[in-house]
Amino acid sequence: MTGFWTIPELNELSTRLGTVGTPVAWILDALATATLIYTAIIALKAAGLPAMKAHMMKEDFLTSAFGDGSATTD
Protein backbone atom coordinates (compact mmCIF):
# COMPACT_ATOMS: atom_id res chain seq x y z
CA MET A 1 0.00 0.00 0.00
CA THR A 2 2.73 2.46 0.93
CA GLY A 3 5.29 1.12 -1.49
CA PHE A 4 7.65 0.29 1.38
CA TRP A 5 8.52 -3.36 1.81
CA THR A 6 10.39 -4.75 4.80
CA ILE A 7 11.29 -7.76 2.70
CA PRO A 8 11.52 -6.51 -0.92
CA GLU A 9 11.39 -10.04 -2.34
CA LEU A 10 7.77 -10.30 -1.21
CA ASN A 11 6.89 -7.57 -3.72
CA GLU A 12 7.62 -10.05 -6.48
CA LEU A 13 5.33 -12.70 -4.97
CA SER A 14 2.33 -11.40 -6.90
CA THR A 15 4.00 -12.24 -10.21
CA ARG A 16 4.51 -15.82 -9.10
CA LEU A 17 1.12 -16.44 -7.45
CA GLY A 18 -1.07 -14.12 -9.50
CA THR A 19 -3.86 -12.15 -7.86
CA VAL A 20 -3.63 -14.12 -4.61
CA GLY A 21 0.03 -13.22 -4.26
CA THR A 22 -0.48 -9.53 -3.45
CA PRO A 23 -2.60 -9.98 -0.29
CA VAL A 24 -0.41 -12.86 0.84
CA ALA A 25 2.68 -10.70 0.33
CA TRP A 26 1.08 -7.83 2.30
CA ILE A 27 0.25 -10.14 5.21
CA LEU A 28 3.70 -11.72 5.29
CA ASP A 29 5.41 -8.34 5.07
CA ALA A 30 3.17 -6.96 7.83
CA LEU A 31 4.11 -9.90 10.05
CA ALA A 32 7.80 -9.31 9.35
CA THR A 33 7.45 -5.60 10.12
CA ALA A 34 5.52 -6.26 13.33
CA THR A 35 8.14 -8.77 14.44
CA LEU A 36 10.96 -6.27 13.86
CA ILE A 37 9.09 -3.51 15.70
CA TYR A 38 8.27 -5.79 18.64
CA THR A 39 11.90 -6.93 18.82
CA ALA A 40 13.06 -3.30 18.90
CA ILE A 41 10.57 -2.48 21.68
CA ILE A 42 11.77 -5.43 23.76
CA ALA A 43 15.41 -4.39 23.21
CA LEU A 44 14.71 -0.80 24.27
CA LYS A 45 12.86 -1.96 27.38
CA ALA A 46 15.71 -4.33 28.23
CA ALA A 47 18.21 -1.48 27.88
CA GLY A 48 16.11 0.76 30.13
CA LEU A 49 15.63 -1.83 32.87
CA PRO A 50 19.05 -1.38 34.54
CA ALA A 51 18.57 2.40 34.60
CA MET A 52 15.15 2.04 36.19
CA LYS A 53 16.51 -0.43 38.73
CA ALA A 54 19.33 1.98 39.64
CA HIS A 55 16.86 4.85 40.03
CA MET A 56 14.63 2.78 42.30
CA MET A 57 17.61 1.69 44.40
CA LYS A 58 18.69 5.32 44.76
CA GLU A 59 15.19 6.35 45.86
CA ASP A 60 15.10 3.51 48.40
CA PHE A 61 18.51 4.52 49.75
CA LEU A 62 17.52 8.18 50.10
CA THR A 63 14.29 7.23 51.83
CA SER A 64 16.08 4.96 54.29
CA ALA A 65 18.92 7.44 54.87
CA PHE A 66 16.76 10.51 55.46
CA GLY A 67 13.70 8.84 56.88
CA ASP A 68 10.71 10.82 55.62
CA GLY A 69 11.62 10.82 51.91
CA SER A 70 11.80 14.61 51.79
CA ALA A 71 15.25 14.56 50.23
CA THR A 72 15.46 15.85 46.71
CA THR A 73 17.21 13.80 44.05
CA ASP A 74 17.92 16.66 41.65
Rank of each mutant, 00 (worst) to 15 (best):
I42S: 10
A25C: 03
K45I: 04
T33K: 02
L17P: 01
D60K: 12
I27H: 08
A34T: 12
G69I: 04
T73D: 07
T15L: 14
V20W: 10
T19Y: 09
S64F: 02
L49R: 06
F61K: 10
T63F: 09
D29I: 04
S14L: 07
F4P: 00
I7E: 11
G69A: 02
L31W: 02
T19D: 14
M56F: 03
G69V: 07
H55N: 03
F61I: 13
A54E: 02
I41L: 11
T2L: 13
M52I: 15
L17F: 01
L49H: 09
A25W: 03
I37F: 15
Y38C: 00
T35Q: 10
A40G: 04
A40C: 06
T35H: 07
L28A: 14
G3A: 09
Y38E: 13
R16I: 05
S64G: 05
S64H: 10
V24D: 04
L31H: 01
H55M: 06
I42Y: 12
N11K: 12
L44C: 13
A65G: 03
D68G: 01
A46C: 03
N11S: 12
M1W: 12
L62D: 08
R16M: 01
L44E: 13
A32E: 07
V20N: 06
G18L: 01
L28G: 08
L10V: 06
Y38K: 05
A25M: 02
L36W: 01
E12L: 14
W5F: 10
M52K: 10
P50L: 01
E59C: 11
P50R: 03
T22N: 13
T6E: 09
R16T: 11
G69M: 06
G67V: 02
L49S: 04
L36G: 12
T22M: 10
A30C: 01
